[in-house]
Amino acid sequence: MVQKWVIKRELARSARHLKFPFYAIAAPIQRYLHDRSKAQNSRFTPGLQPRGAQLALYLLHQKDALLASTFETCQHLAAKGFSTLIVSNTPLAEADRQALAPYCFAMIERPNFGYDFGGYRDGVLWLLDNPGPVTRLLLLNDSVWFPTLPGEDFLAQLLASDCDLYGAIMSQRKRHVSDRYVQSYAFGFSGKLVETALFKRYWQHLNLQSDREWTIRRCERKMTAVFRSAGHKIGARWDFPDVEKALRQLGDADLIAVLQLEAKLEQKRGEVIGPLVARHGQPGWRVEVEAYINSPKFRKFILLLHPSVWLPLNFPFLKKSKERRFAQHRPYFIQSVGPECNPVMLAEIARWDAMDPLVTSAVSQTADTAV
Rank of each mutant, 00 (worst) to 15 (best):
M1Q: 13
V2T: 14
Q3F: 07
K8W: 05
A12R: 12
A12P: 01
L18E: 07
L18Q: 08
F22L: 12
A24I: 07
I29T: 14
H34R: 15
D35C: 06
S37Y: 10
K38S: 11
Q40N: 08
N41V: 15
R43P: 04
F44A: 10
Q49Y: 04
G52V: 02
Q54K: 14
Y58L: 13
Q62H: 10
Q62Y: 03
K63D: 09
S69F: 08
T70G: 05
F71V: 09
E72G: 07
E72R: 08
A78Q: 14
F82R: 08
T84G: 09
L85R: 06
N89S: 15
L92G: 07
E94A: 14
D96Q: 07
D96P: 00
A99R: 14
C104L: 11
C104H: 01
C104V: 05
M107A: 11
I108K: 05
Y115W: 08
Y115P: 01
Y120W: 01
G123W: 03
L125P: 02
L125T: 09
L125G: 11
D129V: 07
G132E: 03
V134C: 12
T135P: 02
L137F: 04
L138A: 02
L139D: 06
N141E: 02
S143V: 06
V144A: 04
F146V: 01
P147M: 11
P147C: 06
L149M: 02
D153W: 03
F154G: 06
Q157L: 08
Q157H: 14
Y166G: 02
I169G: 03
M170T: 04
M170V: 09
K174W: 13
R175C: 10
V177H: 11
S178A: 15
Y181A: 00
S184Q: 04
F187D: 04
F187C: 02
G188V: 00
L206M: 01
L208G: 00
K222H: 01
R228G: 08
A230R: 00
H232N: 09
K233C: 12
K233F: 11
I234P: 03
R237L: 04
W238F: 15
D239G: 12
P241F: 06
P241I: 07
A246S: 02
G251T: 01
L255R: 00
L255C: 03
I256R: 02
A257H: 14
V258L: 14
L259V: 04
Q260P: 01
E262D: 13
E262S: 14
L265A: 10
Q267W: 11
P275L: 05
P275G: 09
P275Q: 07
A278S: 11
P283R: 01
P283V: 00
W285Y: 03
R286Y: 10
V287W: 09
E290C: 12
Y292H: 06
I293D: 06
K297D: 13
F298Y: 15
L303M: 12
L303V: 08
W310F: 09
W310R: 04
L311K: 12
L311R: 12
P312N: 05
L313S: 13
L313Y: 11
F315M: 11
P316D: 08
K319H: 06
F333R: 00
P339C: 07
P339W: 04
L346T: 05
A347T: 08
I349M: 14
A350L: 08
R351K: 11
L358N: 07
V359P: 04
T366S: 14
T366Q: 09
A367H: 01
V371N: 11
